[in-house]
Amino acid sequence: MKIELTSPIPGKIMKVIVSVGEVVNEDDEVMKIESMKMENPIYAPAAGTITAIGVKENDEVEVDDLLLVIEEGG
């Protein structure tokens, strides 16, 4: 099942830690978003394979913007 991870906060993408095809566990750190001058870790919502990444470093994101897609169980 595909799970979409959307941005929980507005801010700027500081770092994309994972890449497409990578296998992650639930609660692995996948990105860092800078918001209000604070570095906020973003964690994987489920275990699986990253199938798409919707943002790149230095992108500005709003709440609910798509960050990445995980194919669960992959």
Partner: peptide, 22 residues
Amino acid sequence: PMSARVVMKEGQKYNKKNYLLM
């Protein structure tokens, strides 16, 4: 914004998917 950051960090300690920042 120190105390807002403190709150964000505390909240995330108990639930990694909780972003109380805003």
